[in-house]
Design a protein around this nucleic acid. Sequence first.
DNA 1: TTGAAAGCGCTAACAG
DNA 2: CTGTTAGCGCTTTCAA
Lengths: 339, 339
Amino acid sequence: MATIKDIAKHAGVSVTTVSRALNGYSDVNEKTREKIKAVARELQYSPNLLARSLVMKKTKTIGLLVSGMRIEGSKDNFTYEVLCGINDCAGERGYDLILFSTNSEQQQQKTYNQLCQERKVDGVILQGIKIDDPYLNEVVESDIPCVLVDIPIESTSVGYVTTNNKAGAKLAVDHLIDLGHRHIGMINGHEQAFVSKERLLGYQEALVKAKIDFQEQYVVNGSFLESEGEVQAEKLLTAYPEMTAIFCASDLMALGAMKAARRMGKRVPEDLSVAGFDNIMLASYSSPTLTTIAQDRYQMGFESAILLIDMLEGKEGAHKKVLKTSLVKRESTSKTQST
Amino acid sequence: MATIKDIAKHAGVSVTTVSRALNGYSDVNEKTREKIKAVARELQYSPNLLARSLVMKKTKTIGLLVSGMRIEGSKDNFTYEVLCGINDCAGERGYDLILFSTNSEQQQQKTYNQLCQERKVDGVILQGIKIDDPYLNEVVESDIPCVLVDIPIESTSVGYVTTNNKAGAKLAVDHLIDLGHRHIGMINGHEQAFVSKERLLGYQEALVKAKIDFQEQYVVNGSFLESEGEVQAEKLLTAYPEMTAIFCASDLMALGAMKAARRMGKRVPEDLSVAGFDNIMLASYSSPTLTTIAQDRYQMGFESAILLIDMLEGKEGAHKKVLKTSLVKRESTSKTQST
DNA sequence: TTGAAAGCGCTAACAG
DNA sequence: CTGTTAGCGCTTTCAA
């Protein structure tokens, strides 16, 4: 509750001097500084960041715009792990995070710019928004520095962090091909996800390399949902009994696919190999455990924050970061029995 | 970037009128109001919440002090799900959330009061802090309204939300007793957790009711960790071969216990019944699936926010909320074979 | 090395 | 119904 005014009074100096002393300016007598510091301690002073921000036009605050901070997200933990990464980096560098809820209707009525300008965040990290989200246009047009997770847009004020989804998908499909599979289906996410496009490309690339014809009807969308994964897997396996492997663009859908297989009396991996993408927690607890492509969500968050803060502090450097993936072989894939 | 000053100029009125018009005061001519609103829209005005907060002494911001926002948390998702609940309620009621990182050393040097006073949050929700956390004392002494998750402290400015842990534990142990078990071990969390104390009481209560002697050596601590659950389960099962069931104070530890059993050649549930607490995602994906006590983490978050905001807005009412639990029967528990 | 004064953008008495 | 004035707590010229 004490203000610099109080300190000034108690220390017998002006507010200017207090401000300078506390902020470590050099042009202040060391004795006065010590005295001021002592008084500040005594009065349990803590600066009012609102007032400071108002004049400095910097809040040391990063906005976090997460679309889909929902309970369902605890299945794949994407949001949470990214958040952990952001939080750690921000903490290290002295920034606090402010969470913009985009769930509630109340907040949805505000534009992106309103959200940011009202709270005067220095920059923003956007996560989980779809390619056709109206916020996205605003982001690009606005000049508030921001970093996008998994959407490749780059400009002076916009950067992004993503995983090498194409390479990751290729890794998975290569693995299936190595195991002898020739009829490989794919359950993709949805059209509004950049990562889906990339993962499809990786799938196709692997096929081309192995001289396997791409069959359009082998690829369906499952909206990244476990339930849809199950539905779509059943459809694929019914329509194309020759299929011996399915690559899913998310582990959740892969779990769904395994369920479908089980229900249809197909054993995984003996009759059907299933590979996922993400390497979520559940992947190592399901039975059979799931072969998948690992992507480091914590790191994505951490790098997003680095990128953004570097931008905010005027550090030069690339505005994008593409993280590596790796193949995690588990029980859900094996050599094809049918040859 | 436009301020009320700009609007005032364009509309040919004073800033006061602008302020009043935009804030919906009644004592302003509807025509002037309309005009002002039009100008505001035209200029893409959005209020500077910093300035407003500075004078109003209200920020419409809730601080979130989460200890242990770490990647390991994605195993049980406690933090994330509580956060979702808080976020949803806060969003509905027009509050934004500011995340205080307590991970980094930088931030740890600040006291609780500094954290809150600097950012001028209206209130705070604390989650995941231990009973012996230094922040806790500060909370009680400070007069910043706050709500604690899973720590029962109540005062004019402090409230809490928790689950009925005693009843929940009793439910689990009753279930094991019903199945015929008489030698039931317990792997608890740790001394610094209020919930651990409660769950132990529930365990004891169930034993008393069934006229089973409480054996102190049957109860060990596993720090809520899967790995420790495994270690402690092995110790228990080795030392007390008569044991046919273990109640674990968290699902994670229960998963560890099942691992230990498997490693020791004991089948679950035929040779050993295992019950957990929490009903985390993994509980329904493990094999065997885990019998457990469900607690609604999202609801805990939501209720915390309700409690806090009600306090902030001067609504009278209880400062605590205790949520119900329920038993979720799955595969890991069954009738005892050895009789 | 220090202080006086102005101002960040807003709200809130108090007059008129 | 509207404007004038003051002030929230801080930083920052500009003088001294």
